[in-house]
Design a protein around this nucleic acid. Structure first.
Length: 103
DNA sequence: CCTTTGACATGTA
DNA sequence: TTACATGCCAAAG
């Protein structure tokens, strides 16, 4: 059997972790990358999550970058987070100090 | 095969 | 936290 195939397995692992992020908290791409044993592939997480929206059922809106910035071109993400109680700072970033997911 | 790209991270200032 | 530079690594061209 082929193994190490990316995308599909990667998608599965990523979504599994994303599904564990509690409402009202956010996780960074690097944080997720680390949880699936690919700490150097933070960028791929974003790549996969950009498609994950089509899967619907996953809270991919709870993933932001290390600075707490929301995904470019996806303004609605902020609304989704605010609906869960996540507050944004005046600069438009999530207050990571308070909302970053601790596992 | 080589180059570019990307929902990023991290060190330094 | 921001801004800039550098590193990363798979995917797409």
């Amino acid at each position: 059997m082929t193994r190490h195939v990316l995308t599909e397995e990667l998608i599965y692992e990523i979504l599994s972790v994303v599904a564990e992020i509690p409402a009202g908290s956010v996780a960074s791409y690097g944080q997720i990358a680390r949880l699936i044993g690919r700490d150097r592939n933070a960028r791929l997480i974003g790549k996969v999550l950009s498609m994950a929206q089509y899967y619907g059922k996953y809270p991919c809106h709870r993933v932001v970058n290390s600075a707490g910035r929301t995904a470019p071109g996806w303004a609605r993400q902020r609304v989704l987070l605010e609906q869960e109680g996540v507050q944004f700072k005046p600069n438009g970033c999530v207050d990571m100090k308070r909302y970053q997911w601790e596992y």
